[in-house]
Design a protein around this nucleic acid. Structure first.
Lengths: 204, 204
DNA sequence: CCTACCGATCGGTAGG
DNA sequence: CCTACCGATCGGTAGG
């Protein structure tokens, strides 16, 4: 976006405060104090408190969409798309942890048209995931027993929960986290002992 | 708990409002209006706004713990425990959707000791899940490549996200949702074509 | 359960 | 970017 450096700083600081205390629990004066100025002075840079929230949410939404879109419309093999999408999502969350937390937690504070706009962004994002899953099913590289809606939900659940537990000082890099999650999701938590035996027998 | 019917009604109504608008965005007068009385009248039943939040959160925490504990300490086979735990969790969420939403979203509004107490409940709950996963790994019924911490995280992500999309008027019953999730998580989203071939060959 | 009221704080504006 | 200020609303209390 084309903000002044000061406005960027305000938005970034607000994302930190909103992510920790929540939008409603953070006052305009809290935000101002963090920036070493008076509450009233903020209003030469912003038009209102919700305006700040909107900028955080919109930028986060653009990041998520901008990360997945090129993957979804590319001609990678479906399984590669899935891996790339998880990696992209994990990178956005880990690279913008405050904004991502606000994105998942605080959008309900939006009113009216902006709320609709935000939900449209989220639906568009989920649609890309759904597309990738359906391609994988059509290509026969995803479990044919998986309902597309449910499989998408499972993927989104896993990646969307990341902001709850990710810590930058943890032992795994974002890409390692993505890799492990994808592998676990694709291979499954089970050992498939019964299925495998049955299949081996039937093949033999 | 041993509340008066009126207090139960207050807590239930508060859970509905808190889950929709958030704790900080819901005023004591909003809550009173919903109960057809004046804001000040609430204070003969409650000792403060945070008190109401605490009751919602504590009851939700007790429900989650009360559901998983008997499963975790039972002598069911590990895979059955996992299925039962998912089913129990889904039942708690779907049967108390407002409280569950508050449980996941609004606990940050708690201050001091109650916040610590709440986090202790959540850690205890996650520990039960971890135990079940580790039993499954030890018994050889879970994918030996799965890191216990990661596998637990994946399970919790899937079940914890449920409150975000579950609607009581949806097509699937809670137990059907649990069943599909467990199957998908255990079998995995992939087809395992490569692995299966490799194993078949090595067995043969 | 009510009326009446409290001080504190809210988001935001005026004017410089 | 500041001081000074606004009306509205906040959670909560007193007293009945």
């Amino acid at each position: 976006m084309t903000h002044s450096p000061r406005k960027d700083q305000i938005i970034k600081t607000a994302a930190r405060l909103f992510s920790r205390q929540g939008y409603h629990a953070t006052s305009v004066r809290d935000l101002a104090r963090e920036l070493d100025l008076k509450g009233a002075s903020l209003y030469s840079h912003i038009s209102g408190k919700e305006d700040v929230l909107w900028h955080i949410l919109e930028e986060a939404a653009q990041q998520f969409l901008g990360a997945i879109e090129p993957i979804a419309i590319s001609d990678m093999p479906p399984l590669e798309k899935l891996r790339a999408a998880v990696r992209a999502h994990v990178r956005v969350v880990t690279g913008n942890l405050d904004a991502a937390t606000v994105y998942f937690h605080e959008w309900k504070a939006l009113q009216g048209e902006r709320r609709e706009q935000f939900l449209a962004y989220r639906r568009a994002y989920e649609r890309y995931w759904r597309q990738i899953v359906e391609e994988g099913l059509a290509a026969g590289v995803l479990n044919p027993k998986a309902d597309p809606k449910f499989a998408t939900l499972l993927l989104l659940s896993a990646v969307n929960w990341l902001y709850q537990w990710y810590r930058p000082d943890g032992p795994l890099s974002p890409d390692e986290i993505a890799e492990r999650f994808t592998t676990l999701l694709l291979e499954g938590l089970g050992t498939h002992a019964e299925e495998r035996t049955a299949e081996t027998v039937s093949i033999a």
